[in-house]
């Protein structure tokens, strides 16, 4: 139901006739550095990854130093059995392990920092994502926000049984569409057992469409359909919320609770998430 909050946000903006926004300088406290973890096991990949870093000052303008923790130890577990230590890949600046995960299995990682502290992720079950049955595009001339718009639509069958959640990731010309507005996810409270026909996963405004056309005169669209846990669903729902926090009808931002905790004191949490996902990749779509 995220769309409702987007509509409300949109409305807010439309009616703030006299409003104005400007970038301001403010001073923020800087806290001590905290561990940040981003990692996943994904069923369509042979190599699984974990990236470690520390938080930076909020106005810092560089990417985190992912090699600062290259001497940490990261171990991946499947159904409580160790799959071994992950190795640090210096070029990609991430820990990797060669392993194909299985649907129905549970995964977690142990991270031993050079200080000796042990962080562990709460286990994530790899849930079946179903399949994208078809993917296609359509011109929508009546889009009330964007005017003439091009929509990417797909059809799929929701997996029987409750407790499922899905995220669709869209790659345009090989580039992952990662802004808050691009996040598209749903849980099966709303769609249990249904056939999803013509589910819109991405919408190009006419300007964006023109700008995205490559030299070969077309746009390449790849869509991943990921089956995710309810816990990770909640995590990305909050990520999306934090993309819209300024308006009167937006929820104020708050810490998004990670699934990674310090084993010595499980109230000390890292930031980020380690998740498991079954992924079905749709046939590549070319828009011309």
């Amino acid at each position: 139901m995220k769309n409702i909050s987007y509509i409300v946000s949109f409305l807010t903006v439309s009616f703030l006739l006299f409003s104005c926004q400007d970038v301001v300088d403010i001073e923020l406290d800087s806290a001590s550095k905290r561990l940040v973890v981003e990692g996943a096991v994904q069923s369509h990949l042979d190599t699984q990854f974990v990236k470690l870093s520390y938080t930076s000052d909020f106005f810092e303008t560089t990417l985190p130093d992912y090699s600062a923790l290259s001497n940490a130890e990261v171990e991946l577990f499947e159904d409580n059995i160790s799959l071994g230590k992950m190795t640090f890949h210096t070029k990609k600046e991430q820990f990797e392990i060669f392993h194909r995960p299985e649907i129905g299995s549970e995964y977690y990682i142990d991270i031993t920092l050079p200080t000796g502290e042990l962080f562990r992720s709460e286990p994530e079950e790899l849930r079946f994502a179903g399949q994208i049955d078809s993917i296609y595009s359509e011109v929508d001339e009546s889009n009330f926000i964007l005017g003439d718009a091009v929509q990417v639509l797909l059809s799929t069958q929701e997996v029987e049984g409750t407790g499922d959640a899905y995220q669709w990731k869209v790659f345009i010309n090989g580039e992952y569409q990662s802004t808050g507005e691009d996040l598209f996810f749903i849980n099966d409270d709303l769609i249990e057992g249904n056939t999803l026909n013509r589910a819109p996963v991405y919408v190009f405004s006419s300007d964006e469409y023109d700008n995205r056309i490559e030299e070969d005169g077309r746009i390449e669209v790849v869509v991943w359909q990921a089956g995710i846990t309810r816990n990770y669903y909640r995590y990305i729902a909050q990520l999306a919320d934090q993309s819209f926090t300024g308006g009167p009808f937006d929820t104020p931002p708050a810490e998004i609770r990670s699934n990674i905790y310090n084993t010595a004191n499980d109230e000390e949490r890292a930031l980020g998430y380690f998740y498991a996902a079954d992924v079905d990749v749709a046939d590549t779509l070319f828009l011309e």
């Binding site: 930076s56 985190p64 934090q242 104020p252 708050a254």
Partner: peptide
């Protein structure tokens, strides 16, 4: 009162503030 971040981290290709305390 308002919540301000005390640091930044990256996840899913997004730069995010960490908001440790409400207001």
């Amino acid at each position: 009162p308002i919540s301000y971040p005390d640091g930044k981290f990256f996840f899913d290709n997004k730069a995010l503030g960490n908001f440790p305390l409400r207001n």
